[in-house]
C-alpha cells in the first residue's frame, strides 16, 4: 500500500480536510473576536498577515477538495448512466477549479493592496 493508493488517499484526504476545516473554524472564530471588525477595510485587514492569508487559502482548498470527493461519491452512487456521470463530473470539477482560482485571486489581492 503506497501513497498512490487512490481509494485510500482520497478517503484519508477527505477526512484530513474535515479536521483542518474544523480547526480553522475554531481558530478563525477566536481570531475574529479579538479584532474590532466594523467595516470592509477592517475585515479585509484580517487577511493581510501571511499566516491568516495562507491558512484561509488552505481552508478554501480543503472545502473544495472535500466537496469534490463528496460529489464524486454521490455521482458514483446515484448516476448510473456513465456518459451523464462523466459530464456532471467534468462540470463539477471545472466549477470547483474555477472557485479555487477565484478565491486565490481574492486572497492574493488582499496582500498586494
Amino acid at each position: 500500500m503506497s501513497w498512490r493508493a487512490q481509494g485510500m488517499r482520497t478517503w484519508l484526504l477527505q477526512r484530513l480536510s474535515a479536521i483542518y476545516m474544523l480547526l480553522y473554524g475554531i481558530g478563525f472564530a477566536i481570531y475574529v473576536i479579538n479584532y474590532d471588525v466594523v467595516d470592509f477595510a477592517s475585515w479585509q485587514a484580517l487577511f493581510v498577515p501571511p499566516v491568516a492569508n495562507i491558512a484561509t487559502l488552505i481552508f478554501f482548498f480543503s472545502i473544495l477538495y472535500h466537496a469534490w470527493v463528496g460529489i464524486r461519491d454521490i455521482l458514483i452512487d446515484y448516476v448510473k448512466w456513465s456518459p451523464l456521470r462523466f459530464v456532471l463530473w467534468t462540470l463539477v470539477t471545472a466549477l470547483l477549479i474555477a472557485l479555487g482560482v477565484w478565491v486565490t485571486m481574492i486572497l492574493y489581492s488582499v496582500v498586494t493592496v
Partner: peptide, 18 residues
C-alpha cells in the same frame, strides 16, 4: 496482507462503504 489491501483499494471495492 499487502496483496489483500491493494486489492481493496480504489473507489469501489471497499470505499463505497459510507
Amino acid at each position: 496482507t499487502d496483496e489483500r489491501l491493494q486489492d481493496l483499494d480504489g473507489p469501489y471495492r471497499m470505499f463505497r462503504c459510507h
